[in-house]
Design a binder for these strands. Structure first.
Lengths: 124, 124
DNA sequence: TTTATCGTAACATAAATTGTTACATGAAAA
DNA sequence: TTTTCATGTAACAATTTATGTTACGATAAA
């Protein structure tokens, strides 16, 4: 699939697609070809690649939008607040990443097939 | 405590403090006074106010920095990805908010006292 | 040789957050 | 009563981050 086509699917720009897919290529999950009949292909085993691996491949972007304002504040009040929050955030993150680790691309493909079949059935 | 003083503690601006504290006032957690000897005070019972209540009072800001790109995509692949993520995010959010609900301002105050005592001991 | 594609740098735009200025309002002290 | 100190709030500015765009070189197949 070309960057152009993927971009159209996602409603974005081909360069943005290349930028992001580049990380997945570095992680060995996809490969890209230039020139005629070029574009992107998945090279890894669908049953092995998990959402967690994708998250990691993309540079482990921050999961939370809220959190500590300062990492090591001198203010004792802020220290107390940070301490109270840190464990909670760590546990929530662990839960989420564990869930990510249990979803493979094969799972997504199977879900897609089911949705696709359902859609074709609806057409009748 | 004045907005000015709080702002200095947090390394920000008095107006930003007023803006945020205004939400807490609307929720009945703090009150403010003008003029001489004015400023902010906590009016609620420290043992009753939880971090979850603060989150709610502040308008329930988004917890996650990552997530669905589109809420109801027509793309079946995107639908599959969204479905796989939604439950995981919902569970992680529930866990986090549950933790928030179990930390009161009194807990923070107790933790602060301990830290303060420790700090004074260190001075000897 | 032409066409189609990625790779990448450089720049532009957009959106959200945060910070700032200005001034009106109110309350206590002098 | 006047002065001083504080919040309330609107309007605007600056910053940051993410996203989008343009341009062009490199490469591969038709």
């Amino acid at each position: 699939m070309t960057s152009e086509a993927i971009a159209q699917c996602l409603g974005t720009n081909p360069v943005v697609v290349r930028r992001t897919m580049g990380f997945l290529r570095e992680a060995g999950i996809v490969s890209s070809g230039r020139g005629h009949a070029g574009g992107w292909s998945i090279t890894a085993d669908l049953a092995i690649v998990t959402l967690q691996q994708l998250h990691e491949a993309l540079g482990e972007p921050a999961i939370f939008a809220i959190g500590n304002r300062t990492e090591n504040p001198s203010c004792l009040v802020e220290q107390s607040v940070n301490a109270a929050l840190e464990d909670a955030f760590a546990d929530a993150e662990a839960l989420l990443l564990d869930r990510f680790a249990n979803v493979t691309l094969a799972d997504l493909a199977a879900d897609f097939s089911r949705r696709n079949a359902d859609m074709l059935k609806q057409k009748d």
